[in-house]
Write a protein that binds this DNA or RNA. Structure first.
Length: 453
RNA sequence: GUGGUUGUAGCUCAGUUGGUUAGAGCAUCAGAUUGUGAUUCUGAGGGUCGGGGGUUCGAGCCCCCUCAUCCACCCCA
């Protein structure tokens, strides 16, 4: 058979892994710096844990796992009946009861709901694991990709929300990516829906205005019309979308607009708090009133990160969800979190050439294989170096030096160590610096010192 | 889920209106070179042209189906 990869997945070879690790390490370091603790959860969750949390579109993208044992003849009739239900779009436990995790937030919420009694609140955890989505792959979109999440459970304090925004700024500064960090509040969107008497159309409204930058005002209005809003309602939304200016100016306009709306006032307070807490200028953190975010569970502040100078969807997103564990029967535990899209960050950094040069590691030394006796002797020398923490290897078979040099060059090895019969007799070796193309003869007793000095 | 793109050697790609034995560069291997590497020279291996079916005297090229790929929409990291 011809070997292939499943759609939307990739193998990662050494050079790629080094760069990915660089990104992961940077994020992890910052997470730890801000007091977050690691958590890992299984790749598979119960299907009912993940369904109904991401909206209708989201549910369609969940990878479901077919149950084992369906080929048992005793179950055939039942299985066929159940499959009819699947065709009608229902989930049937007897056919599938597990799914690959779709994100890290819901597993986190499940974990908190199961363990809240033991956790020190507020519980600050970070998680860096792959997630799976049955999307059609395209640029910056994979079916298996890493998310790095930091969430705080058990605190309503907006200090958390502000800190998470600060983590975004810190991580991307360390990675050298120029970003646009956009912020809004779901409460403001709720208020907008109420203001135009479209409470029940909140979803369609947010989906439509989210596209403003992409498709323009006219198309947004078209879309609003399609979802059943009248001219007067659309006018209100248009006025809202026409709010421009600095963060301060936007807040001013919002205050007038929502002076009689409780949700609106709260949303404005949230935004004001974040901006005030971080005391940074508009260019770093921008209020974006069109920012909506699709995931159903957000209730307060929402974030989205885009890379400047690169054509790529959002490389990070998050927000506050005030009753996430409520879905699992544990009420009154609020949460707020952010997510980094490692694979998209990688693509952006590759596109903008932002990875540091000396990223690729090579081992320190290659012992040349000069023959049977010589290689046995070299092997002993090599083991001594290894015992002292110097990474090295012995060429796997006797070969022409030409070949061994090329091998060393390809593998980014820094030194070649040559021990032939002459060197064996004289108890020394030739050490060649492959980058400088310089070599010297060194007594075997001095070899360790040469590398550890 | 919808629409489009591309698929030829390990990799990047040429391949004329359908016409003999499908090519190049890089990579690999061997030799010039039995102790000194990114250079050079010589030679070699490597292809069911994504897969299946059809049209034709004849298909890498045309038609149908299928798979994969990339891109856009939807949605999202």
């Amino acid at each position: 058979m011809k070997p292939t990869l499943p759609q939307g997945t990739r193998d990662f070879a050494a050079p790629t892994i080094r760069k990915r690790e660089y990104i992961l390490d940077t994020i992890k370091t910052v997470f730890e710096l801000y007091g977050f603790e690691p958590l890992e959860t299984p790749a598979i969750e119960n299907l009912e844990t993940v369904t109904g949390k991401y909206g209708d579109e989201g549910d369609k993208l969940i990878f479901k796992i077919l149950n084992n044992g369906l080929d048992n003849p005793a179950k055939h009739r039942q299985a066929k009946e159940d499959f009819e239900k699947i065709l009608q779009g229902k989930n049937v436990k007897t056919l599938t009861e597990r799914a690959l995790r779709y994100d890290l937030t819901i597993p986190f919420a499940r974990y908190v709901a199961m363990n809240y009694a033991q956790l020190t609140m507020p519980y600050k955890r970070y998680q860096m694991q792959p997630v799976w989505r049955a999307d059609r792959p395209q640029k910056g979109r994979y079916r298996e990709f890493y998310q790095c999440d930091a969430d705080v459970a058990g605190s309503y304090s907006l200090i958390n929300d502000a800190e998470l925004a600060d983590i975004y700024l810190t991580v991307f500064k360390r990675l050298g990516i120029d970003i646009e960090l956009k912020i809004n509040s779901r409460k403001i969107l709720t208020a907008l829906a109420a203001l135009c008497n479209g409470d029940n159309k909140m979803m369609s409204i947010t989906v439509a205005i989210d596209k403003l930058n992409k498709i323009g005002m006219d198309k947004v209005k078209e879309e609003l019309e399609k979802s059943g809003l009248g001219p007067r309602q659309i006018k209100i939304i248009e006025d809202y979308l026409n709010i421009r200016g600095s963060n301060e100016e936007k807040l001013g306009r919002l205050k007038t607009l929502f002076s009689n709306n409780e949700d609106g006032r709260k949303g404005i307070e949230e935004l004001e708090f974040i901006l005030n807490q971080l005391t940074i200028n508009d260019s770093l953190l921008t209020i974006d009133l069109t920012l909506a975010r699709g995931l159903n569970y957000y209730t307060g502040i929402i974030y989205e990160v885009k890379a400047k100078n690169a054509v790529m969807g959002s490389i990070g997103g998050g927000g506050r969800y005030d009753d996430l564990t409520g879905l699992f029967g544990v009420p009154n535990i609020p949460g707020v979190g952010i997510s980094f899209g490692v694979d998209r960050i990688y693509d952006v950094m590759e596109e903008l050439n932002l990875f540091p040069d000396k990223m690729q590691k090579g081992i320190t030394a290659l012992f040349f294989n000069m023959g049977k006796e010589e290689s046995k002797f070299a092997f002993q020398q090599m083991q001594q170096l290894r015992n002292n923490g110097i990474s090295c290897e012995l060429y796997h078979e006797p070969a022409k030096m030409d070949k061994q040099f090329k091998y060393a060059a390809k593998k980014n090895i820094k030194y070649a160590i040559i021990i032939g019969s002459k060197e064996m007799q004289e108890q020394n070796c030739v050490v060649k610096d492959l980058a400088k193309n310089e070599q010297q003869t060194i007594a075997l007793t001095e070899l360790q010192n040469y590398f550890t000095k």
